[in-house]
Every structure is written in C-alpha cells, then in structure tokens.
Design a protein around this nucleic acid. Structure first.
Length: 563
RNA sequence: CGGAGUGUAGCGCAGCCUGGUUAGCGCACCUGGUUUGGGACCAGGGGGUCGAAGGUUCGAAUCCUUUCACUCCGACCA
C-alpha cells in the first residue's frame, strides 16, 4: 500500500474527551472514529487490526474443534420472553418494533438464539458434544459507554456455546476453552491472567475471566506472589487473617463511648487494633418482590465485598441506605450490634467462634466489650474483600492487587437455558434430558484497544507483529530526490513480490512529519531512505526502542527477510 | 438513572456575561514560491443554516423557553 492511497487521517490533537492511551492513539492515528455514543467506525487501518485479531481467534477455535456460525443480529423478542431474560435484562437490552408492530431486540449475547438453533436438531447423545460460535456485532445499551473501544455499546464479540450430555464433559470443554483462549492471547502478545470470577446470580459451577493486565483496567484482580492463584476481587478468597501482635484481654461489659462511631475512632479510644471490633454494614437489598434492610457484620479491619454480599443474601441488587431509613427501622446509627436484630443478618467467616470482640450495643453512645461469638449460631459467609498482603488460600504467599481489563469470560452454564427453552436430548438410556451448556466470550473489538492499552509509549501505538496493519513502513525522506524515490519504490515492489507486509510513505511531506506518523501509527519497523543513500546507506528504525541502525542498501532486503 | 458540563469550519478553541457592520484564531485543507533528517516559511485561497425549534428585539452566536446530541463523576455492566 502506498500512503498516498491510504485513507488514514492522522491528527495532531486528540478529541478532548479521549483520556486513555488506546482511545487517544486509535483516534489520532485514524484507526477508528466515533459516530455516536459508544459507537465507532473502523477505518482501513483499524479494520486490518480488527480482522487480524478475528482471524487469530477463528484459527484457534477451529483448531479446538469449534464451528463458526452466524446468527441474526436482530432477534425476535419471544425467545427472550421464553428464557425469562426479557424482564431481567433491563434497559441494556435495546428493543424495537418493526412495521408490523412485532418486537425485536438487538442481540447483546445469544444464549437464547443459539439454544433455539440447536433445539429439536440436537436429539441424541450421539450428536454431542458440540461447540458453536460466532464472531458478530453485539449491542448493549450501556448506561454509560466510555473509554473509546473499551466500553462501547456496539462491539464485536466472539461468543461460543457448547452442548454436552453431562457436567463431566462440560468441564472437559471448559478446560479446553481456557487453553484455547490463553493461546489466542499469547499469539496476540498480551500479558494476561486467568482469574476465578464471580458466577453471579445465574449460579453454575464456575466461571473464569481472562484479564489483560493494564493500569487503566476497570477490574481489580488479586494475584498470588507465590503461585498461580488469581481471582477477580469479587470472587477472591484468602486464608484467615492472623491475629495482630499483642495480647488483648477484656472484661465483658458495656462501655460508654460518647459520639464515637467509626472503627478508627473506636480503635483510638480503646487503644485496641481494629481487628477486634465488629463492623456493621447496612444495605438495602432489592428482591424481585420486595426490598428490605439487611446487616452484614465483619471485623473492623475488613471491608465488605459487595458482590459477595449480594450473592450471600440472594438479592438482585444492593443499595446504600440512609441514616434516616436506618433510624426509621429502629437502629441506632453508629452503635449497631449483632444481637436482638429483627432484620436479616449475615456474618463474615472470620467472626466464627471469635472472642474478645467489641461491638455496638444497639444503644446510643454505648459499645459492648469482651463479647464472644463462641456459642452463637450466626449465619456465616465469606463477605469480605481481600486486600493486598493477605495470604493465599492455595500456598500461603502474600497476595497482590492489580488492575485488569476483562477480555474473555468462560462459564459453566449448566442447564438453565436448555430447561427454560426446552432443549432436550435422549441420553444413552433413552431418557430425555436437558442439554448441559457452557458459554464462552471474547471481546474482539475490545482487544484492539487492549493491544494499545498494554503496548504504547508517549509517541503512540506499538503493534505486535501479529496485529500490526503493516510490518514495515518505508519512509522516503525527500520525495523530490529521484534516487531516493526509485530505490524506495523498487525495494517496495521487491517486498510486495515476497508478500512482505509493507507501506510506502510516498507523501510529499517533511521527514519529521513522516517519522511522527510512523511513531503514532506504531508499525514495528521503518526503513528510512534518506540522505545516507548517496553513501549507499539506509536505516532500519525499530519502533519499540526508537533506535535506528544503518545498513548498506544492498543488504537491507536480506535483513528485512530475516525479521 | 442521579449530579455536573459542553455544543461556533475536519480537530482544538475564542467571542456570549454587557445584543449592534462582512463571526475570529491555531492546526488541517487548496494554489504558487522558497525549503527538505524530526511535525518548515512566505503569499494567496476554500470551508460555518454558531446543535435544532420557538420566543423577546429595529437587530440574536450572544437574552428567554423547549428540545436533541455528546462528554465527565457516580450508580449500573452475562
């Protein structure tokens, strides 16, 4: 490709709302452009990258025995009503009507459509297992699209669905998909971790996310410094926290604590580590039919993990609750204790059989001290957030916290959808059973942005060989210099004959301008044909290091072939 | 969905408060010339329903009302 023919409108300035490197450089480099909130056009360079990633995804999936299909982007509403998600999915699901007043949705994910495709067609265990996928546009009407391609409303996703006769075979496929996804990310050159994830309200026997490590990630992930354990903070586990140094002895009793309501102030007041205090966190739990106040109790040194808390009480949603609402419910804000509560209470595992505790007395300005839970039959669960420095459940090493961007999610779905939609098969005994399903997603257009989020510098993009739109950029320093033009052009033609991916920057621009574009666009190598040519020399520029090496013009082609 | 903003040329912005000739600047673009190894210079030029609708006024980018779009913080996010 000659640059003079390429539609790649580069710009010196980024749109003012582009904050992340991926957003800034992809727009400035003319890879993508925004056309609406969370909706992006892919220009030629962006389209090449997108297709390269898509191809890698397809190659690895096909190798793993998956088959590509393509489902309608527009899906009739009936299917969504059948599965029960029509009501559940909320406003994220974009609904509309056609001229005959029939209602449709733009597919945000395709469990229903895929189950519909196979039901009554997969009839026997002999046809199983089966893994079907598509790489197709998705639409989710996000309340707040942001960060360019990272959180758009319209995006390209690979979504796959597998069908099995039993859980055991599902687990085999699940492991295979983890391997396959890992291989895809390795080929792209991304630094990632597979982490344990929250399975959410759907349940199922497990789910894992593939997280690319990046400073601007939206998810907090816990990784072990000593072993492979890694988890989304929403699902992370830890060993029991060790007791702080120093003996603590206290007589049972009630203590006057005027206006001392926070754990920090109490810890100061009693000169006792926050570990010994019982913290009460009140939330409003929203259920399908009702909403009510619930209390979560944990150690003063811990924080409530909301996703765990929500799963524990089985609520659809947890909301903050105001002091007024608490008082109306008969609670003494700042002095809430675990005893004699009329609302649902949940306790963190770390309080099981605990003693030497200080907790609210349910009475203004008083705390109970020397409290023991030794003989209490409370409802214990893991509801705390894991912190950096806590010890790993697997090996005991220190856990670290880092940021990640979710690029893939694999999920053991079970039979929820096949039951709802009546997708059954006959097993070896001739018995009718619902198909056991897995679902696997990987964000293809998100990966375009993730590549840059992880690989960029202050000048622009840094594409890996597997994703770059062009591997080589031949920069002609002066287009008026016939010797430069003729050498560069013949090198370009020679490279094209060898099917080497190359862009010829034949624009009538100054040297600095072209080099700036080379750096912004992030091709791995520049071949600089300039003033050195008189001495028979050209330069090979390395984008990653910004170094240039001088090479004799007769040797450059061999050098290129070796890269 | 709550809170806060912004809409003026392809991009970034000024002008608005305090209404008054042909609405300006930088970058980008076009023509000519001089330049040519790190985003050049000189001269000339093209490009705007000032987001939209309505209103006030002799006169509206500017004041008022309505509306749409986009953005930021938060909530939300298989």
């Amino acid at each position: 490709m000659r640059f003079t023919n390429l539609f790649a409108p580069t710009a010196k300035e980024a749109p003012k709302d582009a904050l992340l490197p991926s957003h800034i450089y992809l727009v400035r480099g003319g890879f993508v452009s925004q056309i609406g909130a969370g909706i992006y056009n892919f220009l030629p360079l962006g389209k090449i990258v997108l297709d390269k990633i898509r191809t890698i995804v397809k190659e690895e999936l096909d190798k793993a025995g998956c088959q590509e299909v393509q489902l309608g982007f527009v899906t009739p509403t009936e299917l969504w009503k059948e599965s029960g998600r029509y009501a559940k999915f909320g406003k994220e699901l974009l609904r509309f009507k056609d001229r005959k007043n029939n209602e449709f949705v733009l597919g945000p994910t395709h469990e229903e459509a895929m189950v519909d495709l196979v039901r009554n067609r997969l009839k026997s265990y002999k046809q199983l297992p089966l893994n079907l996928y598509q790489i197709n546009t998705k639409f989710r009407d996000e309340a707040r699209p942001r960060y360019g391609l990272l959180r758009g409303r319209e995006f390209l996703m690979k979504d796959g669905y597998s069908f099995h006769e039993d859980e055991e075979d599902l687990k085999r496929e699940y492991a295979l998909m983890e391997q396959t996804y890992s291989r895809i990310l390795e080929r792209l050159g991304l630094d990632f971790r597979v982490v344990e994830a929250d399975s959410g309200a759907i349940g199922g026997s497990g789910s894992r996310e593939l997280m690319v490590l990046a400073d601007n990630g939206e998810d907090d992930i816990i990784v072990c410094s000593g072993c492979d354990y890694a988890a989304n903070i929403e699902a992370a586990k830890r060993q029991a926290v060790s007791v702080p140094d120093g003996d603590v002895e206290m007589q049972a009793g009630t203590f006057h604590t005027p206006d001392i309501t926070t754990i920090e102030a109490l810890s100061d007041f009693f000169k006792i580590d926050a570990y010994y205090f019982v913290k009460a966190v009140a939330k409003k739990a929203i259920y399908e039919e009702e909403e009510k106040i619930v209390l979560f109790f944990l150690r003063g040194s811990d924080e409530l993990q909301e996703v765990k808390a929500q799963n524990t009480c089985g609520a659809l949603e947890l909301e903050d609750v105001s002091s007024e609402e608490l008082e109306a419910a008969g609670m003494v804000v700042g002095f809430i204790g675990p005893h004699n509560q009329s609302v649902d209470c949940y306790f963190d595992d770390s309080l099981k059989k605990a003693s030497s505790l200080i907790c609210g007395a349910n009475k203004k300005d008083y705390h109970d001290i020397g409290v023991s839970f030794e003989n209490e039959e409370f409802d214990y669960h893991d509801i705390t957030s894991v912190n950096a420095g806590d010890r790993c459940v697997a090996c005991g090493s220190a856990l670290e916290i880092t940021k990640g961007i979710e690029v893939g999610h694999i999920f053991q779905l079970g039979t929820a959808y096949s039951e709802a939609l009546g997708a059954t098969f006959l097993d070896r005994n001739g018995k009718s059973k619902p198909l056991v399903m897995g679902t696997y997603g990987i964000g293809v257009s998100r990966l375009v942005a993730v590549m840059i989020e992880q690989h960029h510098d202050e000048k622009g993009c840094l594409w890996t060989d597997a994703t770059t739109p062009f591997k080589f950029d031949i920069v002609i320093s002066s287009i008026k210099d016939e010797e430069q033009v003729s050498f560069a052009t013949s090198l370009y033609e020679q490279m094209q004959e060898e099917n080497i991916s190359v862009l010829l920057d034949d624009r009538n621009e100054r040297f600095g301008f072209k080099m700036g574009d080379f750096e912004l666009l992030g091709f791995p190598y520049a071949i600089i044909v300039g003033k050195g040519l008189k001495e028979g020399e050209v330069q090979l520029g390395h984008r990653a290091t910004l170094e240039k090496e001088t090479i004799h013009k007769d040797e450059i082609f061999e050098k290129i072939k070796g890269l």
